[in-house]
């Protein structure tokens, strides 16, 4: 058999195959490359948008550092307008609300916290926004809604913060027992070494720790009066 002839045949087969499949192949490659580059471009665009929002946010932090709440508010509105879905918008609102509250502009702060809560990108942000909003509402005299918000569940990690808030709400209501219990719960989770723990401990102590709850050292029954032993036992329960 003539090798040249056979190669010619092979070439012919190849040509035929190409005629049948060539278009599909080229289309596939173009589509694949297009998808790849398109995806990259989309990623780049997203990063660019995020960088722009981040730049605004950093400007906002600078104004926050200077204590200029109005300038911060302008930047928050810009973030919300130009980067509505971005986490930066919510982060900016939380920051602004705290600044406004510190200045005593509680009604402005409330609005921003409501929007932060509505747009929270995850449960951690939602819990933060909700607890702050509840505290603010209580300060504005909207006790009922504050109690309702403070009653909503939060992730476990946020329980001590919620407990502090509930303690404050109960204390304001005049319910010392409930307040003490809430503060105790917060203290157990925070530990007295943390700054917030120290603050909560102050508030708990101010409500009064009755003598029978005080941490007396264990006293052997029989040696001391029965009352002393009783004290020691209960003390042990109060301070596990």
């Amino acid at each position: 058999m003539d090798p040249y002839e056979s190669e010619k045949e092979q070439l012919e087969t190849l040509r035929r195959w190409w005629r049948e499949n060539g278009k599909a192949l080229v289309a596939g490659v173009v589509l694949g490359l297009g998808a790849l580059f398109g995806w990259r471009a989309w990623q780049d665009w997203k990063l660019e948008r995020a960088a722009a929002a981040s730049g605004l946010y950093e400007q906002l932090l600078e104004r926050h550092g200077a204590g200029d709440a109005d300038a911060v508010a302008v930047l928050v509105e810009r973030l919300a307008r130009e980067h509505g879905g971005s986490a930066y918008a919510v982060m900016g609102r939380l920051t602004l609300a705290a600044l406004l509250a510190a200045e005593g502009r509680l009604d402005d702060a409330e609005g921003h916290l409501r929007q932060a809560l509505a747009g929270a990108p995850d449960e951690a942000f939602a819990a933060t926004a909700r607890l702050q909003l509840a505290r603010l509402l209580a300060a504005r005299g909207k006790r009922e809604e504050a109690e309702r918000l403070a009653g909503e569940p939060v992730p476990d990690a946020f329980e001590p913060l919620r407990a502090e808030l509930r303690g404050d709400l109960a204390a304001a209501r005049g319910d010392a027992e409930e307040a003490r219990a809430a503060y105790e719960a917060a203290l157990r989770a925070l530990g007295p070494a943390s700054p917030l723990g120290r603050l909560v401990e102050l508030k708990r102590d101010d409500l009064g720790v009755p003598p029978q709850h005080a941490d007396s050292p264990p006293v052997k029954a029989g040696a001391a009066s029965g009352e002393g032993a009783e004290k020691a036992r209960q003390g042990g329960e109060a301070q596990p």
Binding site: L94, T95, A98, A101, T128
Partner: peptide, 10 residues
């Protein structure tokens, strides 16, 4: 963002 968001009322 979480840290700065703590509200302190009068």
């Amino acid at each position: 963002a979480i840290e700065r968001g703590a509200v302190v009322t009068p």
